[in-house]
Design a binder for these strands. Sequence first.
DNA 1: TCTCAGATCGTCT
DNA 2: GACGATCTGAGAT
Length: 191
Amino acid sequence: MKKQFFARDTVEVAKALLGKILQYKNTSGIITETEAYKGSEDPASHAFKKTPRSAIMHESYGRVYVYFIYGNYYCLNITTEKSKPGAVLIRALQPVEGIKTMTKRRGIKINICSRESLANLTNGPGKLCQALGITKALNGTAVGDKIKVLDKPLLKKFKIVATSRIGITKAKNLKWRFYIKGSAFVSSRQK
DNA sequence: TCTCAGATCGTCT
DNA sequence: GACGATCTGAGAT
């Protein structure tokens, strides 16, 4: 995915990312749920105020922003927009490659024949970071460098289960959440 | 120094 | 389904 892909409106990027492949090292998954954070308008966004942690959202787009939360989990964001601070939080994935590795990292047992069980690997922002091995070490790297967003090249090999219908919720003021409707691979709050 | 957090998991009803 | 415990880091004061 070209850097320009992330140079537009945060909400548009959040929508466009659904169905794309997120790849890191030997693991990948189809993005099934995103959340748009418009830093210039949304007080809930880290980018609303410029701090050392959130500076990356003010300075560039198409970069990885990883933050640590609740003492346990990382959350993966991709910075957006040329002239305003913003980011899209990747909330859920449908596992495609490296399921064995993901299972090991998550420390859980799953039944790979069960979609519900498989979904439990990456159906939350903290879970997907853990499953893909994403840590703060990736913070600030360009998308395409270590973490890649691909425009479905893997779909020839792997059958996409989810439909392409996009669900939209508006959580709090200007926070937009998008998810693939009917997919088992979204966070529990969307079901 | 204190408070809170864009989450998850286990337990209880 | 609801709720509480958990843990550490970032930001506010």
